[in-house]
């Protein structure tokens, strides 16, 4: 098997012509991104490290970050966002993994139907998710109506609690999660599982010893994409979540739009970006590692 190069792995040096061609090929999207987003973003990052000094000058300082991390309210919002990310991702994995395993190996009409159900939320924008949530799980919503109809007490609604955004984000994130996990399962083949079964392994042992180790990178990918999505989410936490603690999305918007504290809003934006960048690098790193491994290890 030939080496399948990854974006991060080095391949032998090539001629001058073939060094210019790829640069030409990537030029348009790279320049577009540089011009409209990366350059202004870099400027914004630099501005957060400049604070007014003596005599109208600006000096380099980490004061903005010290202010953010020294303020318990801001830190609370930050950890709340991390909490939401962790919980949402865990729930997504607990629901998504069995579904993905099922979709990977089962065949027929039922799995096809299950698959289209799993995919549907991809086509429902957050605003409608929020709207449907309030009508269904909100106070005196459909679930309450059914409970009332059969003589049960009303449920404790997750609307306006930290669980509101979690449920909304799980709903919203299920399609992508299942797709990512399905990708990891591409590496789990029948012979591997059969071999394990031949030596008498149960389904739990197969999951722990055969399936999960081969999915490490796709689990990391799921995590990094979720961080990206949840840190930038606005509509669901804003409409479904509690007033406090806030999530970073609505918090940044409020700092920027309502409090008019542009410097602080920018700092919050950079912190959010840094977290996403960290997990984004994890994504690139994990596919690189996965490819190298599958290229080297070859057939499983």
């Amino acid at each position: 098997m030939h080496e399948a190069a990854s974006p991060l792995s080095r391949t032998p040096a090539v001629s001058a012509r073939s060094r210019v061609l790829p640069l030409l090929l990537v030029a348009t999207p790279v320049l577009l991104a540089l011009w409209l987003v990366i350059w202004p973003a870099a400027e914004a990052v630099i501005l957060t490290f400049l604070v007014p000094g003596e005599g109208g000058t600006e000096v380099w300082s980490t004061a903005n970050y010290a202010r953010f991390f020294g303020d318990s309210y801001s830190v609370n919002n930050f950890t709340n966002t991390l909490w939401t990310t962790a919980v949402t991702t865990t729930i997504l994995l607990v629901i998504g993994l069995p579904l993905a395993i099922y979709l990977r190996f089962a065949k027929g009409q039922l799995p096809a139907t299950v698959q289209s159900l799993v995919m549907f939320p991809m086509f429902v924008p957050s605003i409608i998710v929020a709207y449907a949530f309030i009508r269904t799980l909100g106070p005196n919503g459909t679930v309450d109506i059914f409970l009332h109809a059969v003589g049960l007490p009303r449920m404790r609604t997750p609307y306006l609690t930290p669980w509101g955004p979690v449920i909304g984000l799980v709903w919203d994130g299920l399609p992508l999660t299942v797709l990512l996990l399905l990708s990891g399962l591409g590496n789990v083949t029948r012979p591997a599982v059969d071999a394990a079964r031949d030596v008498g392994a149960g389904w739990l042992a197969i999951l722990v010893y055969i399936i999960l180790p081969r999915m490490r990178s796709s689990l990391l990918v799921t995590l990094s994409f979720n961080v990206l999505g949840i840190f930038s989410s606005f509509t669901l936490p804003y409409l479904l979540g509690p007033a406090a603690p806030e999530m970073m999305g609505p918090f940044m918007q409020r700092t920027f739009g309502d409090l008019q504290d542009v410097g602080m809003a920018r700092t919050q934006a950079v912190i959010t970006f840094a977290v996403c960048l960290l997990f984004g690098a994890l994504y690139v790193w994990s596919i690189a590692k996965g490819r190298t491994k599958s290229a080297a290890g070859g057939k499983s």
């Binding site: 987003v37 973003a41 914004a44 970006f273």
Partner: peptide
């Protein structure tokens, strides 16, 4: 990644 991860309002 910057395209999706950097909050646009800034």
């Amino acid at each position: 990644l910057t395209l999706r991860a950097f909050p646009k309002f800034g």
